[in-house]
Design a protein around this nucleic acid. Sequence first.
DNA 1: TTGCGTGCAAAGCCTTTGCAACGGT
DNA 2: ACCGTTGCAAAGGCTTTGCACGCAA
Lengths: 148, 148
Amino acid sequence: MQRESDCERIIGTLREHGFRITPQRRRVVEIVCAADGHISAGEIYDDIHARNPQVNISTVYRTLEWLENLGLITRSDLGEGREVYEIATRGKHHHLVCDRCGAIIEVDDSILDGLREILMEKYGFRAEITHLVIHGVCKSCRENDGSP
Amino acid sequence: MQRESDCERIIGTLREHGFRITPQRRRVVEIVCAADGHISAGEIYDDIHARNPQVNISTVYRTLEWLENLGLITRSDLGEGREVYEIATRGKHHHLVCDRCGAIIEVDDSILDGLREILMEKYGFRAEITHLVIHGVCKSCRENDGSP
DNA sequence: TTGCGTGCAAAGCCTTTGCAACGGT
DNA sequence: ACCGTTGCAAAGGCTTTGCACGCAA
């Protein structure tokens, strides 16, 4: 499957560039690749720590920082102190979250094209929106509730 | 000026509702009103503490929470652990945050009109975006760096 | 062997909380 | 005088850092 090949590809890239592949680093890469979307440093640590209690959380943070600097994973700040990571190969996307039923809808990055243009034209601001979470009400909930 | 009347209006509202107006609470309200836009809890504390060293930061946090619950101020999560407050009377707006120089640019809610339309048309999703923080690079940083 | 990476412990930030004393009304 | 508020201190959650040992290459 795609996630496994992502993982092997990343490990291979690191090895080719002469980076040391330690068991800890390998586990972090595996877990991030296996994750279905975002995952936090704490979740990665819990996962590793369950099998290898000697592994320290500082190693997880250092590995994530290293992978991020290498451009192999991306970090998103979800607000409220929540920082999550995911592999960088996924197409850029964002999430709509329905506040009624909790549904999460993945939307393509292109929905932001217009907004980016406006910000550049009006403010000269180059928006770098890596991950956006938009709350609201989904279609079925609107129809069920009869709300606009 | 507007800020002063905001301040007096809030104090008056609090007093009318029977809330106790302590010097600490008064100072917090004054500082938030006097701030040009958003201000962080730490900045408020520094301001108060400079003149009244006995005032504790926990009082600042408690007062801000109280004012927020009363709907008199709003809190925005700028990401990276930065939370800022401002008086609630201001028109709906959003923030552009420059990741190079830290500048914060206030933009009107209308910049999201297009995005809201797209989400409604393509996904039937009614976006309820109360406050959006968009990271990126501001005009002057782009010009200084020569980046696009 | 060599020096990069790790575990450990401690600290750094920001924010919250328990508790006894204080002070608005 | 009452009881809501405050100051203090401590803790809590997450992340970072200094240091000496250990291990990948």
